[in-house]
Design a protein around this nucleic acid. Sequence first.
DNA 1: AAGAATTGTGATTCACAATTCACATTATAT
DNA 2: ATATAATGTGAATTGTGAATCACAATTCTT
Lengths: 205, 205
Amino acid sequence: MPAPKTQTLQRQEQIVQAALELINDSGVTGLSIAGIAQKVGIVPSALYRHFTSKDAVLDAVLDLIQQRLMANVAHVREQTPVPLQQLKQLFTRHAGLLNENQAIPHVVFSDAVYTGLPDRRARVAQIIFTYLQEIQAIIASGRQDGTIRKDVVPATAAVMFLGLIMPAAVLWNVSGGNFDMAAHEKSAWPAYERSIAAQNPKEAS
Amino acid sequence: MPAPKTQTLQRQEQIVQAALELINDSGVTGLSIAGIAQKVGIVPSALYRHFTSKDAVLDAVLDLIQQRLMANVAHVREQTPVPLQQLKQLFTRHAGLLNENQAIPHVVFSDAVYTGLPDRRARVAQIIFTYLQEIQAIIASGRQDGTIRKDVVPATAAVMFLGLIMPAAVLWNVSGGNFDMAAHEKSAWPAYERSIAAQNPKEAS
DNA sequence: AAGAATTGTGATTCACAATTCACATTATAT
DNA sequence: ATATAATGTGAATTGTGAATCACAATTCTT
């Protein structure tokens, strides 16, 4: 029996979601038109009614990823005006996001990014750098209000912020979940804070 | 004209080297039997005289990578007995290694790691964790001799050490070399050192 | 130098996945 | 209600890349 007809807009959402899940499970390599179609409940050829190509699907996945990254930044900005607090919350949220969506590291690190259209690499770069700039902005504003040391280089500190999570995510990934992410979070944040905060309230060694 | 006969041992080295270069250029996806064969100067089917499968080639590449990582650790241990110095040198060397061999991040992040034999994931995990343990050991010894703060958790600090370089390497990769790695190195190390060193000789804010 | 082992070659097979297309069915517009 | 657009379907096409095999050329052993 044929799948019920559904508007392209909804189908596109379903397809992107299915693609994301597929990548979560088996990486970009595991992303196939047939796989997506099956998850959505249509036949492979039907997919071409809603996307012109597999590449177009991947691009849409990139859109979704960027959206989620930015949503986290916006969220912590609403939560608190204190830069260090924003960073700490973003740290937790970012770790959670990568944890639930391993597709994100998979896509970012995928060499489909490099092999595919030359634009794609630039696209991924733009996503990361934009995210990085937001972090940088938070750090800069902390420097302004004196809660972050003046000798901290925002660009460097922002990259290090990513470095707080990225290797942990990789370890979690590669070990099949056999890595204590919670412990790392608990212990890494104070260390990072110590390296950028202007002064620790009564906690000299 | 046929390629000159060459002993399997040498051919294996050539093949692994060619595979590494191929991955450097176009990721694990770009790794093909045909591609390797062409680089080596033999015909695709000839490759099967020296490796049983493409997977076997990938495994050999993993061997090579592990070897190079460990060589760096051994090297800095010979250079100086001071843990913080060892870390600093390893930092530079590790960054250089990833820079010259983008194959390393490519392979580690590749979903060929996840898609392939189930062993492979474990294999990669073992490589990274072993490397991590060496770093951890250096940090622990610094804690012993008092040059590194007692409240530093070696495991966490080791992961953060990786985080000093991993995101930078990704940025370098994704931006097509348009990221100032040297500047990052120069600025990131002091920040890291500040977060783990026992005391900075006369440099309070 | 004869025979065995090693290495190289080209043709071929096999599986797999993206894409296209002619046709069927359902929704939408007038 | 009827024409037109939108969506779904199965079959067929195409490309790709790994792996196998029978045979040729070379090297090694004795």
